[in-house]
């Protein structure tokens, strides 16, 4: 099982992903420079957080045209796993691998704090290693994380069980008080219809080690790795 982490100019969570996957979970992992056109045998691609290409124009708008993205799209269309975290989620929506868009937070501020998330179900590659009805804590760090999609897309996400993570209270209750950025339906993470592409705003790679605040992020990567075991 090999994870490949795409590095754009301006990525800044690439090393967090690398360290957590390699040292905390002992997986094979390598960086993939954005001008590269070879995924060097990576089984799962991670688009990490940061400010790819300075977030110029819109977050993720320019990163989608980096040469490596053509290979990432092929990889995704072949049904292989792709994870977009924060800025990576924004890139996945810009390139059309996931529906909707991430807009400026309704608070108008950059929000950096731990949030609690409800795992909606365990019937996905990315959530199957969590316990049933789990509520986890992960940090968010974004200025543009308000998930928006048309009514039709939202209805589709709901009917196909493609909402995987929602902002909630520590007991799993939903209310605007626990929604940090104004996302529709408290959405923090979704997947595509085939279930191999996942995007989320919170940062699981920052919760891979007890000394760094917890290990609630691990199960996402463990779930994917089990599929290759």
């Amino acid at each position: 099982m090999r994870f490949g982490i795409v590095v754009f100019p301006g990525s800044n969570c690439d090393h967090d992903c690398y360290w957590g996957l390699k040292h905390d979970l002992a997986y094979e992992v390598n960086f993939l420079w954005h001008r590269q056109k070879d995924l060097v045998g990576s089984d799962c691609i991670i688009l990490p957080g940061g400010f790819a290409h300075g977030d110029y124009l819109r977050a993720g708008a320019i990163a989608r045209f980096s040469p490596i993205m053509e290979e990432v799209v092929k990889h995704a269309h072949n049904g292989k796993p792709v994870i977009g975290i924060c800025n990576g989620f924004q890139v996945l929506t810009e390139i059309g691998l996931l529906p909707g868009a991430l807009l400026k937070n309704n608070t108008l501020s950059f929000i950096h704090k731990p949030v609690t998330l409800r795992i909606e179900h365990r019937d996905s590659l990315f959530t199957r290693s969590y316990k049933t009805n789990a509520v986890i804590e992960l940090p968010i760090a974004h200025g543009q994380g308000r998930y928006y999609a048309s009514d039709e897309v939202i209805a589709e996400l709901q009917s196909e069980n493609r909402i995987l993570f929602r902002y909630s209270s520590p007991k799993g209750e939903l209310s605007s008080a626990w929604n940090p950025n104004g996302s529709l339906l408290d959405i923090a993470g979704i997947c595509n219809a085939a279930g191999n592409i996942m995007g989320m705003m919170p940062h699981p790679e920052r919760r891979m080690n007890q000394q760094l605040g917890g290990v609630d992020g691990r199960a996402i990567f463990q779930g994917v790795a089990q599929a290759f075991a």
């Binding site: 124009l57 819109r58 708008a61 810009e94 909707g100 868009a101 807009l103 928006y148 999609a149 048309s150």
Partner: peptide, 8 residues
């Protein structure tokens, strides 16, 4: 293609 995000 680039300058606008026609979703929003």
């Amino acid at each position: 293609k680039l300058l606008a995000n026609i979703n929003v």
